[in-house]
């Protein structure tokens, strides 16, 4: 928790000052993962399906006892997957012409270099450690199970029967044991050395060497060298990987890249939408106002027009009245004058 707070402060400072507090890297860099991190190489051509690894894993992780004991190999007849009580399972495959007998493959978290689970978790419960393990922190997990959706290898499992404190369950690469300087439980227990623990780079060299030395024994491909951007747990086999239920259509794109495009659209929407929508608002407002203005001015004009008409009429009427009056007065005056004249004439006579 404190790390997250520290990180958050770091981001705040970086966002504010653009300073050098943030670790530097550019987006175009080809990230190669932590140097000298550890991993395991599983050579299925050496695996005999004894389930010793399953037993050891169960013990070192204090997992509940299985329904059938670990030395009962009848369980191999059905295909199993990991579940909340087992971090690893061994399955048996019939591969036809590629091997004389059945082939066994151990299955657990592959500890991806760029884990899909970590990319997907919205509380960052998963961390790819410099040592190689992808570790899970149950103390922040909300239980949304998006990590399980995201994992391309169908690894993480969930405690569906736990009412209040369900956890995501998966192989830890025996991180606690590694810290004590011990080997992972399963690796230590394997009687056939089908599992090799070591630095990832060294494991790739070893695998290449085996494939080169025994070209008839192996398919020329190290599963996990590039799958989904590479994994810390890798496999070499004598049969095509599909025959061992391993997906070969996953591609080499690291999981975080799948969502990075969508995530980088977020700031663009935040940046552009208000401008666009605000603009539309202004335009619609303006239109509204213009329509309004037009209406009012039309009304005003109409009123003015009537007013003017009325004025003109009035004026004309008044003019007429005035004229009439004038004429009347004039007439009266002339008449009066004429009368006066007459009177005078009368008097003069």
């Amino acid at each position: 928790m404190s790390t997250s707070r520290r990180k958050f402060l770091q981001w705040m400072v970086a966002a504010g000052a653009g300073s050098t507090v943030v670790k530097s890297a550019s987006a175009h860099e080809h990230f190669k993962g932590y140097p000298d991190s550890y991993g395991v190489l599983h050579d299925t051509t050496l695996c005999i399906g004894c389930r010793s690894c399953e037993k050891a894993c169960n013990e070192v992780n204090d997992l509940p006892a299985p329904d059938k004991p670990f030395d009962d190999t009848s369980v191999l007849e059905t295909k199993r997957r990991t579940d909340a009580k087992s971090y690893t399972v061994v399955n048996k495959y019939d591969v036809g012409e590629y091997a004389k007998g059945p082939v066994f493959r151990k299955f657990q978290c592959n500890h991806c270099l760029e884990p899909a689970c970590a990319s997907a978790c919205f509380v960052g419960a998963f961390t790819k450690t410099p040592e190689g393990a992808v570790s899970y922190d149950a103390s922040v997990c909300v239980g949304c199970r998006y990590c399980i959706i995201a994992c391309p290898f169908d690894v993480p499992t969930y405690e569906y029967d736990e009412a209040l404190t369900p956890r995501v369950m998966k192989c830890t690469l025996c991180e606690p044991r590694l810290k004590e300087g011990k080997l992972p439980g399963c690796v230590e227990a394997c009687p056939m050395e089908a599992l090799t623990f070591g630095k990832r780079e060294d494991l790739i060299t070893i695998a290449r060497e085996r494939i080169r030395k025994y070209p008839n024994r192996y398919i020329d491909h190290i599963y996990g060298e590039h799958e989904m951007g590479g994994t810390s747990w890798m496999y070499i086999t004598g049969a095509p990987f599909e025959k061992l239920d391993m997906r070969t259509d996953l591609g080499v794109t690291p999981a975080p890249e799948l969502t990075s495009g969508a995530l980088s659209l977020v700031p663009m929407v935040i940046g552009v939408w208000p401008v666009l929508l605000g603009g539309l608002y202004v335009i619609s407002k303006r239109k509204e106002r213009m329509a309004h203005d037009e209406k009012t001015s039309a009304v005003k004009e109409a009123i003015d027009q009537t007013q003017a008409d009325a004025d003109a009429k009035l004026k004309a009427a008044m003019e007429k009245a005035r004229k009439e009056k004038e004429t009347a007065v004039e007439k009266a005056v002339t008449k009066a004058l004429a009368d006066a004249e007459k009177e005078r004439g009368k008097e003069d006579k």
């Binding site: 928790m1 997250s4 990180k7 958050f8 970590a118 990319s119 997907a120 978790c121 919205f122 509380v123 960052g124 419960a125 922040v140 997990c141 909300v142 239980g143 949304c144 199970r145 998006y146 969930y158 405690e159 736990e162 209040l164 404190t165 369900p166 975080p256 969502t259 995530l263």
Partner: peptide
Amino acid sequence: VGRPWRLPYPFFVSQGVTS
């Protein structure tokens, strides 16, 4: 979700911003 009372965690406790 498994532990609903933790729904505020992504914002207040541990921010998984890549998700």
